[in-house]
């Protein structure tokens, strides 16, 4: 594995990003954590900088779900993983995300402790040391 591992968040909530970054910092201090705040800021080929993209759904300029087909087209392959991480509990959002090719659909826990734990587990699953 390269030491250049990076996870990229599409996340408009500062608190959510800060908590996620803090969670990763605790268990994986070497991992780089990147962030874009809205859909339009997403680089066309994120796989050039990141191996794991974590998409929120409801963003100021659109839905993270809409980015999935284009991102996977540009960054197809086993070394790139795309997951959805949202507050939505809607079954249709989940089904749609998975059908479009997202590896997993995570619901953001209400409890910060569980939130931290989930982010750490997620990173460990797709970007093992």
């Amino acid at each position: 594995m390269t030491t250049n591992q990076c996870v990229l968040f599409l996340e408009d909530s500062d608190l959510d990003f800060e908590l996620a970054a803090a969670a990763i910092q605790k268990t994986r201090p070497a991992l780089q954590v990147g962030r874009v705040k809205q859909c339009s800021e997403m680089p066309p080929r994120p796989c050039e900088v990141s191996q794991l993209v974590v998409l929120d759904i409801h963003l100021p300029d659109g839905s993270g779900l809409d980015l999935i087909p284009q991102l996977l087209k540009e960054c197809g392959g086993p070394s790139f993983t795309l997951v959805v991480f949202s507050t939505s509990t809607s079954p249709s959002d989940r089904v749609q995300a998975l059908e479009l090719g997202a590896r997993s659909f995570y619901v953001k826990p209400q409890e910060p402790d569980q939130f931290v734990l989930l982010v750490q587990t997620m990173v460990e699953s797709y970007l093992p040391e």
Binding site: S13, D16, L19, T87, P112, D113, F115
Partner: peptide, 11 residues
């Protein structure tokens, strides 16, 4: 916002 409040308490 309630989730946010919890996160702030956490920090």
């Amino acid at each position: 916002p309630l989730r946010g409040v919890r996160q702030i308490v956490y920090f």
